[in-house]
Design a protein around this nucleic acid. Structure first.
Lengths: 145, 145
DNA sequence: GTAACTGCAAAATATTTGCATCCTT
DNA sequence: AAGGATGCAAATATTTTGCAGTTAC
């Protein structure tokens, strides 16, 4: 087992260690974006906080995870799908959605960030588009009451 | 003097205190978005960090400042222009730009966030659109060399 | 065998809370 | 006068750094 996580680690020139596999498995089994605290909780009491910090940074550097900014609480991390990200090319053009009800953040992989024309002189490198609202599940639950 | 900052404070039902005026003046004299650290630096050594935290929260709650998420470092704050924001309606639909060279974040007031069609079931409340790149000044400087 | 990774302790930073005092209204 | 705001001390939380021991290759 852990086939997929091992595959991902190898693809990104990283050694296969237990900590990395366990953290990666968390992301593979969850469709949502995870914060540092989410990950610590998911790993249980036996996880070392420092290792989590370092692993997240490594994964983000290597192109396994991408970061999602947040104005209220902490940065979230989510898997880079399509396996097209690496240390050099680490671009994403999908929209992120954060639910104000359940607090979960997710990637809307199908929704491409609409491009805009910058004022003269500005150079575009990358963009983040985050929508806050109510996710489909929470909206459905609310409708039932 | 400080006419404008007093005016803003009164408009938002806040008492006129020295700390608030000084912090607000920083924003009025700068066109860019400021982080907590920027503000402490701008105030000098005689500023109390706790007061800055509380003032920023108050300003954001009341609709004087809006927050700009960031994936690398800290949240930035910027003035809500047009005076249309309050505790209840605190919406912004302009794009933010962060320069990777000078590190400054600014509001592109003229650029409206393009809207998108969310998947079925999702409810939109608000959006953040942040572009990373090189700002006009830094790009011009680079071109000279 | 060697370089990379981990995990612990500890340092450095950042943020929040409590409370007595002061200030605005 | 009264409630709100400040500023200090201290508690919490977060993130980074150093280093010795361990592990993947």
């Amino acid at each position: 087992m852990h086939t997929e996580s091992r595959h991902i680690l190898k693809n990104h020139d990283l050694r296969l260690t237990e900590a990395r596999e366990r953290i990666l498995d968390l992301f593979l089994h969850e469709e949502r974006a995870l914060s540092h605290a989410d990950i610590e909780a998911g790993l249980g009491a036996d996880a070392d906080r420092v290792t989590v910090y370092r692993t997240l940074r490594t994964f983000a550097d290597k192109g396994i995870l991408h970061t999602i900014p947040d104005e209220q609480d902490n940065i979230r991390y989510a898997l880079c799908h399509h396996g097209s990200c690496g240390p050099e090319n680490h671009r994403h053009n999908h929209i992120h959605f954060k639910c104000g009800q359940c607090g979960q953040t997710q990637c809307l992989e199908g929704l491409v960030i609409p491009s805009v024309v910058l004022p003269a002189g500005f150079i575009f490198l990358e963009a983040n588009y985050i929508i806050q609202g109510i996710c489909d599940r929470c909206a459905a639950n609310a409708a039932q009451n």
